[in-house]
């Protein structure tokens, strides 16, 4: 899968808690229909609600057949995914 040059980048914030879920969803929705590269390098905390948003976005992009990637995950982000058993999100995580 080649990533078009026009991919939008989204930098995830540090604390993806209850309060972050709404804004994250809005932000992602505003980028719908564009290839997306999400930078997870700053994430210190990932809560269940933001996980839902990311998983839903991933599925939505997949349904739209538009590239969706999460790159340079922070250790905390990776740990959270593994704790949540959200391995489904993992294949889409690009290292580095």
């Amino acid at each position: 899968m080649t990533e078009p040059a026009s991919a939008s980048r989204l930098q995830l914030i540090e604390n993806l808690d209850l309060k972050a879920a709404g804004p994250l969803r809005s932000e992602l929705l505003s980028l719908r229909h564009t290839p997306l590269d999400i930078d997870a390098s700053n994430v210190q905390r990932l809560g269940g609600l933001c996980l839902q948003v990311l998983m839903s976005a991933q599925a939505t992009w997949a349904a739209d057949t538009i590239p969706f990637a999460i790159s340079s995950p922070s250790p905390a982000f990776q740990e959270a995914l593994s704790l949540f058993g959200a391995e489904d999100l993992q294949p889409f995580v690009q290292q580095g």
């Binding site: 209850l18 879920a21 709404g22 994250l24 969803r25 992602l28 929705l29 719908r32 269940g48 609600l49 996980l51 839902q52 948003v53 998983m55 839903s56 976005a57 599925a59 939505t60 349904a63 949540f84 058993g85 959200a86 489904d88």
Partner: peptide, 20 residues
């Protein structure tokens, strides 16, 4: 293991509802 069966698409998702 996580079960996303009830998770809607992003447009339909209520950010503070629990689906998983």
């Amino acid at each position: 293991s996580i079960d996303p069966a009830d998770l809607p698409g992003l447009a339909e998702l209520e950010p503070e509802h629990a689906y998983l």
